[in-house]
């Protein structure tokens, strides 16, 4: 099974995380929201599958290329 790593696209603060390890997600669903540039930026999954790893927690300050989640599909 291939793994898709979702990375932080822009530096900011994690507002909320919508998934836990082991959750099933479908393409286009929201993994988490990052606040940056005074905007809520929804982070969507490009694939459907099972969440193998979640790398962020709410309130955390994140930088580009950090891992948000790893999804097996």
């Amino acid at each position: 099974m291939p793994l898709e790593t979702i990375e932080v696209p822009l530096a900011g603060k994690v507002l909320k995380v919508n998934v836990n390890r082991g959750d099933k997600v479908t393409e286009g669903s929201e993994i988490c929201t990052i606040e940056s540039m005074k905007m809520e930026n929804p982070i969507l999954t490009p694939v459907s599958g099972i969440v193998k790893e979640v790398g962020v927690t709410p309130g955390q300050v994140v930088k580009p290329h950090e891992t948000i989640a790893v999804i097996e599909y």
Binding site: P9, L10, N41
Partner: peptide
């Protein structure tokens, strides 16, 4: 596109 990088 405000859905990507807040439209920056």
């Amino acid at each position: 596109n405000p859905q990507s990088l807040g439209g920056c």
